[in-house]
Write a protein that binds this DNA or RNA. Structure first.
Length: 667
DNA sequence: AGTTGACGAG
């Protein structure tokens, strides 16, 4: 009998290890006799396959089976199953049973119990249980640290990590991995480096989990090149390593390299998973390559990963960034499970796509039925309020952010400053800015840009000069603000001083936008030749914005030659642009070159170019009205034009004047 | 012949 059981149990083990649970179960069910080891092997097969319901149902059968004694092996497996299925009720029952039988003192049972509470989100119960454990090993310590870190209590996790050392328990690769994740989430590079040194001392720094965690830590702390170098030392990067490589490239703005890495990983026969697809799809989103995005969408549908949260979320981002809000919306509505990221993503997509109303609708739907909005969703709708200039809505969102305690997050603060200044209330923007801590360059940038847009150039420049005194560093966007402020008041020398300091002092490569500010500055000063030279020396391919600046300036300064050159470049990029034709014609006309002007008009006609009139809109009494230049379709059109004429004729009209005119016209 | 803990997503 003894020999027979040994033989059968090994067979059972072979089958579960190979993942053939059906044959294993077949053999198990036909066994003439089942001992503790048979039960353990079978249950562990289900637990390893994450089939917690089958594991627990088998456990209940064993509970009532005769001649089987409960032991720590089976109990820890059952607890693990409770952690997997998030079944805290059954877990608590097992806790009571373990205390009654004394099995709770087994370090295996204890560690599994602790992990069960942590996985069920009962962090406090887990910690209390850990403090009462009679015996703890490296697994128990790692379990408590993991639970804390996963719940976002990173510092508490690290304090257990330090306590563990003082208790004389040695770290292993599991412990290092989770401690490094805590450092990554807290972005504390120095402690991360210290742990890196310890992993090297132990000789585990090149093992998959540790190397991946180290790379993540360096990436999150902004040391991207360091993180990438670590992968070079790995003998065989696994799927997580490849995913991190792709993510790092995408974060650095090297999308093409990210996509290349994705292709290289497939050549190395590493199979991508949901996180890998999410990473490469976000890369594709950044460069707005709809065709590649659609290919990957089809591909994830084929491999059955389209339903995964991270994949669906990144697909929504991709479609939104490609200007396809409709496809993003279809994905969102078809999702059976949505997390807070899904909601924030679709709201941001609508906001950036100019679908302000849909963004508001989604936010109220989220507030009714979804998770609590975070700063991501709120800052998106604040930007909608700014671009649509609806101050009342903006104030309401501000009030909501206050009540949920998000108003002092950096993201909301800068979004509020932007919203208020875009809505024309620079005073409220200043108030939001003055209430903020001095630790956030994004808010400073928003305020500088707000001042610049409102023509308060001196204030913008003054604020920029203060940045260094509070220990901050201007970034690329900050420079756009201060350069456009210089451009508005024509401070040519100061503008060039800041522009040069970008590369010399701050090591920031000027982007198209920075060049645009400088070219504007030169144009306003009438230095059209220098502007043209600067455009030609720019290290960028498509530069229609700057050529049209030059074209407009040529019109103002009556420079036919410059205007012709600028228009030529613009028409190469967009041959049917009505504005370019008209401005060029006006330049010729204003300098008396009537024949050339007429030629341009004829050219327009032959190409069939039609000038679309510009639209504007205004909100009056909760109703948005659109109007267009020359429009006479409004029922009170005559009154409107009368008032317009009065406004144009009189230098200064008071609000009282306007009110009396309106009163008269409304009868 | 059997048991516990880890890294990657907006």
């Amino acid at each position: 009998m003894e020999i027979n059981m040994l033989e059968l149990n090994s067979q059972l083990k072979c089958l579960t290890k190979a993942g053939d649970l059906r044959s294993a179960r077949n053999l198990f069910d036909r066994l003439p006799h089942r001992d503790e080891i048979s039960w353990t092997t079978m249950i562990s097969g289900y637990v390893n396959a994450s089939d917690s319901s089958e594991a627990l149902s088998l456990f209940s059968k064993m509970w009532v089976a005769p001649c089987v004694r409960m032991d720590p092996f089976i109990l820890s497996l059952a607890l693990k199953a409770c952690g997997l299925s998030v079944d805290v009720k059954f877990g608590e029952m097992l806790h009571g049973y373990s205390v009654k039988t004394g099995l709770v003192s087994s370090v295996f049972v204890g560690s599994a119990m602790l992990d069960m509470y942590m996985k069920n989100g009962r962090v406090f119960d887990g910690c209390r249980f850990f403090d009462d454990m009679p015996l703890r090993n490296v697994v128990s310590w790692t379990a408590i640290i993991t639970g804390l870190v996963r719940a976002g209590f990173n510092s508490q996790g690290l304090s257990y990590f330090a306590k563990m050392w003082r208790d004389g328990v040695d770290y292993d690769s599991y412990t290092f991995a989770i401690a490094l994740k805590a450092c990554a989430d807290l972005e504390i590079l120095n402690y991360g480096k210290e742990i890196h040194a310890r992993t090297m001392k132990k000789g585990v720094d090149t093992t998959s989990y540790v190397a991946n965690s180290l790379a993540t830590m360096y990436n999150k702390c902004g040391k991207l090149e360091y993180g990438l170098r670590l992968f070079g030392n790995m003998s065989k990067p696994d799927v997580v390593s490849w995913t991190s490589i792709i993510t790092t490239h995408v974060q650095r703005g090297q999308e093409q390299q990210g996509i290349d890495s994705f292709l290289r990983m497939r050549e190395c026969d590493v199979c991508p998973n949901e996180y890998t697809y999410a990473a490469v799809i976000s890369g594709i989103a950044n460069i707005a390559r709809l065709d590649w995005g659609q290919q990957l969408h089809a591909h994830v549908l084929q491999v059955g990963l389209a339903g995964s949260l991270s994949v669906a979320n990144s697909l929504m981002t991709m479609y939104s960034k490609c200007g396809n809000s409709n496809s993003a919306s279809i994905i969102f509505h078809e999702m059976t499970v949505r997390d807070v990221i899904s909601w924030s993503t679709i709201i941001a997509g609508y906001s950036q796509g100019g679908c302000g109303e849909e963004a508001f609708e989604l936010l109220s739907w989220m507030r009714r039925e979804g998770p609590k909005p975070t700063e991501f969703a709120l800052s998106s709708v604040l930007s909608v309020c700014g671009s649509m200039a609806i101050l009342d809505h903006g104030r309401q969102i501000h009030a909501y952010a206050l009540t949920v305690g998000l108003d002092q997050t950096a993201m909301i603060r800068s979004a509020l400053i932007n919203m208020y200044s875009k809505c024309g209330s620079i005073a409220e923007a200043e108030k939001s800015f003055s209430m903020s801590e001095n630790d956030d360059i994004v808010s400073w940038t928003a305020m500088i840009n707000g001042y610049a847009e409102h023509g308060y150039s001196q204030e913008a420049i003054g604020l920029f000069e203060k940045i260094c005194h509070v220990g901050l560093r201007p970034d690329s966007v900050t420079f756009i603000g201060v350069l456009s402020a210089c451009s508005h008041v024509g401070l040519l020398d100061l503008g060039f001083h800041y522009f040069d300091s970008m590369t010399n002092e701050y090591r920031i490569n000027p982007s198209k936008e920075h060049y645009g500010c400088m070219i504007d500055l030169l144009c306003r000063a009438g230095r059209l030749r220098e502007a043209e030279n600067m455009i030609r020396s720019m290290p960028f391919e498509r530069d229609d914005v700057v050529w049209s600046s030059l074209l407009r300036a040529s019109r103002e300064h009556g420079d036919v030659e410059c205007g012709r050159i600028a228009a030529e470049h613009l028409l190469q990029l967009d041959p049917d642009c009505a504005g370019t034709h008209i401005t060029l014609a006006n330049i010729y006309a204003s300098t008396g070159k009537w024949r050339e002007a007429a030629d341009v008009r004829k050219l327009m006609k032959s190409k069939g170019v039609i000038k679309e009139p510009g639209w504007s809109w205004i909100k009056v009494k909760d109703q948005v009205s659109a109007f267009v230049s020359g429009d006479k379709s409004h029922t009170q059109a005559e009154d409107i034009y009368n008032i317009l004429e009065l406004l144009a004729s009189k230098e200064e009209l008071t609000i009282q004047d306007l009110a009396s005119i309106l009163y008269v016209s409304e009868g």
